[in-house]
Computed example of a mutant assay.
Amino acid sequence: MSPTIHLAQQPEADELLSRSPLAVLNGMLLDQQVPMEWAFSGPYTIAQRLGTDDLDAAQIAAYDPDAFAELLKQKPAVHRYPGSMAKRVQQLCQYLVDEYDGDVSAIWRDVETGEELLARLKALPGFGEQKAKIFLALLGKQFGVRPKGWREAAGAYGEQGSYRSAADITGPESLAKVRAYKQEMKRATKADKKA
């Protein structure tokens, strides 16, 4: 059974995220320097522009890079930096084709521990430590992917009842709580820099 995802805050985009591991993985990749809803609606926009109702890693990886960049640049753009993000999406899809035969769920299907899954996520192009931990928490909290020690491997993002990241968003109320947390972290960072 697929979860009901509310990361894009747009029904059609959230429906795709709920049923497509590739869509949610690419949404996580796009989730930088833009509002979260914009990032997570990106996979739906890409699918529409490709003329399909789902995403296919092999199709995206094989797409002409200039033409794919143009797809992401069309108004409204998929990201603030559509050209560079088009490259990242294609790099991620090529990695998935090379390492997992294009099957995103193979990343977590046979892992036994949270640390093993975290290592696999950190190996993905465009996924550093923090993004990998957030995605691990998202998998555990909303997709039921819970290998032994997943919460510990996800760090603070895995904490039950927290409102730190995309992993914790299940609707408008939790989105507001995550936004408030992020604003508080920005204020604290600015205060530390001034001190």
Results as ranks from 00 to 15, higher is better:
Pro3Thr: 00
Thr4Lys: 05
Leu7Phe: 09
Ala8Val: 06
Ala8Gln: 09
Ala8Gly: 14
Pro11Asp: 07
Glu12Gln: 03
Asp14Glu: 08
Asp14Tyr: 03
Asp14Asn: 13
Glu15Thr: 14
Leu16Ala: 03
Ser20Pro: 14
Ser20Asn: 07
Pro21Leu: 02
Leu22Asp: 07
Ala23Cys: 14
Ala23Arg: 10
Ala23Trp: 11
Val24Asn: 07
Leu30Asn: 03
Pro35Asp: 00
Met36Ile: 06
Met36Asn: 06
Glu37Asn: 00
Phe40Asn: 04
Phe40Thr: 03
Gly42Pro: 01
Pro43Asn: 01
Pro43Arg: 06
Tyr44Asp: 12
Thr45Val: 10
Ile46Asn: 11
Ala47Glu: 09
Ala47Thr: 11
Ala47Met: 05
Thr52Ala: 04
Thr52Ser: 09
Thr52Phe: 08
Asp54Phe: 08
Ala57Val: 08
Ala58Asn: 07
Ala61Phe: 05
Ala62Phe: 07
Ala62Asn: 02
Ala62Met: 01
Asp64Asn: 07
Pro65Leu: 00
Ala67Lys: 07
Phe68Leu: 01
Glu70Tyr: 11
Leu71Ala: 12
Leu71Tyr: 13
Gln74Ile: 15
Gln74Tyr: 07
Lys75Ser: 15
Lys75Asn: 09
Lys75Arg: 15
Lys75Glu: 15
Pro76His: 08
Ala77Asp: 13
Ala77Asn: 09
Val78Phe: 06
Arg80Ser: 11
Tyr81Asp: 08
Pro82Ile: 08
Gly83Ile: 00
Met85Asp: 06
Arg88Met: 12
Val89Asp: 04
Gln90Leu: 04
Gln90Pro: 06
Leu92Phe: 04
Leu92Glu: 08
Leu92Lys: 00
Cys93Met: 02
Gln94Tyr: 00
Val97Met: 04
Val97His: 08
Asp98Val: 02
Asp98Cys: 08
Glu99Phe: 12
Glu99Met: 11
Tyr100Ile: 13
Asp103Lys: 09
Val104Arg: 09
Ser105His: 00
Ala106Thr: 11
Ile107Tyr: 09
Trp108Ser: 05
Arg109His: 09
Asp110Ser: 13
Asp110Leu: 04
Glu112Pro: 08
Gly114Ser: 12
Gly114Asn: 10
Glu116Phe: 07
Leu117Phe: 14
Leu117Pro: 10
Leu118Cys: 02
Leu118Lys: 02
Arg120Gly: 11
Arg120Thr: 12
Leu121Ile: 05
Leu121Pro: 03
Leu124Lys: 00
Gly126Lys: 03
Gly126Gln: 04
Phe127Trp: 01
Phe127Ala: 02
Gln130Ile: 14
Ala132Asp: 06
Ala132Ser: 13
Ala132Val: 10
Ala132Met: 15
Leu136Ile: 15
Leu136Asp: 14
Ala137Tyr: 15
Gly140Trp: 06
Lys141Phe: 05
Arg146Tyr: 14
Lys148Gly: 04
Lys148Arg: 15
Arg151Thr: 13
Arg151Val: 12
Glu152Val: 13
Glu152Gly: 15
Gly155Thr: 06
Gly158Ile: 13
Glu159Tyr: 05
Glu159Leu: 12
Glu159Trp: 01
Glu159Met: 10
Asp168Met: 01
Thr170Glu: 11
Pro172Asn: 14
Glu173Ala: 04
Glu173His: 00
Ala176Val: 11
Lys177Val: 06
Lys177Trp: 09
Val178Gln: 05
Val178His: 01
Val178Trp: 08
Arg179Trp: 09
Met185Asn: 10
Ala188Trp: 06
Ala188Val: 01
Asp192Thr: 12
Asp192Lys: 11
Asp192Ser: 14
Ala195His: 14
